Simulated scan of single mutants.
Amino acid sequence: MMSPSSAPNAVATALFSPRESIEFVEEGVRLAPKFCERGLLPCITTDADSGQVLMLGWMDTDALALTLRTAEAHYWSRSRQQVWRKGATSGLAQHVVEARIDDDQDALWLRVRVQGLGASCHVGYRSCFYRSVPIGQRAGGTLSFTEDHKVFDPVEVYGDAPNPTQL
């Protein structure tokens, strides 16, 4: 089983700078990402036009370097334990319009345009965030669907590919 690469490879080394100081990280003009102890960086992905949150993914150094070099979103699959290009199986590739790093460079935000049906969720919805969680006095109540239909049939798109959801 592969594990996320926390040590930058040659491509990543050319793209990423060492984290020299707090000022360098927070106010500098060089990318110096901080990956967690498991070698991963969280990445929130939104639709470039509508701003809708599509998904939260994880990147290791290879996935981040590939994303920046190709302008197509790549992620670290925790279920498959490997880097994958979003849309490799489904055809729903994410073309990166803009990438932003947060203040301490430990989280990434991608603005993308999704090829094909415009959906990013393996369940068939446009967004992976298709249910609303009750809060306040309604906490503990039932989830509410925020999308009223699936954009595609996952069985038709993915066939017998393993489902990434783990119990």
Results as ranks from 00 to 15, higher is better:
Ala32His: 07
Thr146Ile: 07
Ser132His: 12
Leu167Asp: 13
Met1Pro: 07
Lys150Pro: 00
Tyr158Trp: 10
Leu56Asn: 13
Ile44Met: 11
Arg113Glu: 01
Trp84Arg: 08
Asp106Val: 01
Thr165Ile: 14
Thr61Tyr: 00
Ile44Cys: 10
Ala71Ser: 09
Leu31Ala: 04
Phe24Lys: 04
Thr70Ala: 09
Thr13Met: 11
Thr165Leu: 15
Lys34Asp: 02
Gly118Thr: 02
Gly57His: 10
Gly159Thr: 15
Tyr75Arg: 00
Gly159Ser: 13
Ala107Tyr: 03
Thr70Pro: 13
Gln82Asp: 05
Ser21Asn: 11
Pro164Ala: 07
Arg85Phe: 10
Cys121Thr: 03
Pro134His: 11
Thr45Glu: 02
Glu27Arg: 15
Gly91His: 07
Arg138Cys: 08
Ala119Pro: 00
Ala99Val: 08
Ala63Gln: 03
Val123Thr: 12
Glu27Lys: 14
Thr13Asp: 15
Met2Arg: 06
Gly91Phe: 07
Arg138Asn: 14
Asp153Val: 04
Asp102Cys: 13
Gln94Glu: 08
Phe145Ile: 04
Arg85Glu: 15
Gly141Met: 05
Met1Ser: 12
Ser17Cys: 11
Gln137Val: 09
Arg113Leu: 01
Ser17Gln: 06
Pro8Thr: 09
Cys43Met: 12
Glu156Ala: 08
Leu110Ser: 05
Val112Trp: 01
Met2Thr: 12
Glu98Asp: 09
Leu31Cys: 02
Leu143Ile: 10
Pro134Cys: 12
Ser79Tyr: 05
Val53Gln: 13
Gly118Ser: 04
Gln137Pro: 10
Val29Tyr: 13
Thr89Arg: 13
Val151Leu: 03
Gly39Gln: 05
Val25Phe: 01
Ala71Gly: 07
Thr46Ser: 10
Val29Gln: 15
Val157Ala: 12
Ala119Gly: 05
Arg80Asp: 09
Glu26Cys: 15
Asn163Glu: 12
Glu72Leu: 10
Ala48Gln: 00
Leu117Phe: 03
Pro134Arg: 12
Gly140Cys: 11
Asp60Leu: 02
Met59Glu: 02
Leu167Val: 12
Thr89Asn: 13
Leu117Val: 11
Val133Trp: 13
Asn9Asp: 13
Lys34Arg: 15
Phe24Pro: 06
Phe145Met: 05
Phe24Gly: 08
His95Val: 05
Glu147Ser: 01
Gly116Trp: 08
Leu15Glu: 05
Ile135Ser: 11
Ser21Met: 10
Gln105Pro: 07
Ile44Lys: 09
Thr45Arg: 03
Lys150Ala: 05
Gln115Gly: 07
